[in-house]
């Protein structure tokens, strides 16, 4: 096997061994948008959740991931990077560029694309009927 595919950088390695923000929000948590991409049969599947504030910024993230170490590390790093970004910026966030910065081999580009797809799928639910951002949802609860 070419060494390049097995030699992950320290950052990738750390996030693979101890991923940040892994898991999912408890059912019924306010302001959560969820999206999925990929399929186990194809080697990777990602379910990404964005928790969005009333000002339209990402407050927090969670994800579940089935895939290679690069996919897991990209989920973890991306979940950190998205916090505080406006939803539009989160949706436009280039995981592919992140993967390149991390020195992942070109063959791992599809891992990055899967993570991007899951995030965009989540962000795309912003306008779905019945969904409210975090603050608004809390207001509704109080009312």
């Amino acid at each position: 096997m070419p060494a390049s595919a097995t030699e992950y950088s320290a950052t990738v390695w750390t996030h693979f061994r101890s991923p940040c923000n892994a898991g999912e929000f408890p059912a019924g948590t306010a302001g959560v948008l969820g999206g999925e991409a990929g399929a186990r049969q194809r080697g990777r599947a990602v379910a990404f959740q964005l928790q969005v504030n009333a000002d339209g910024r990402v407050a927090d993230c969670r994800y579940r991931v089935y895939g290679c170490p690069a996919t897991i590390a990209l989920c973890s790093l991306t979940s950190e990077a998205l916090k505080g970004r406006p939803l539009a910026a989160a949706s436009a966030f280039s995981v592919v560029a992140l993967a390149e910065q991390l020195g992942l081999p070109a063959a791992k580009r599809s891992a990055a694309l899967t993570v991007e797809d899951a995030i965009r799928s989540a962000a795309g639910r912003y306008n779905s009927p019945g969904w409210l951002p975090l603050a608004a949802a809390e207001l509704t609860h109080r009312a």
Partner: peptide
């Protein structure tokens, strides 16, 4: 396989390429 890096074992896959 990578999570078990403390073990030198072989994968069920023939790792002949990145895919």
């Amino acid at each position: 396989l990578f999570a078990c890096e403390a073990l030198a074992v072989s994968s069920g896959s023939a790792c002949t390429s990145a895919d």
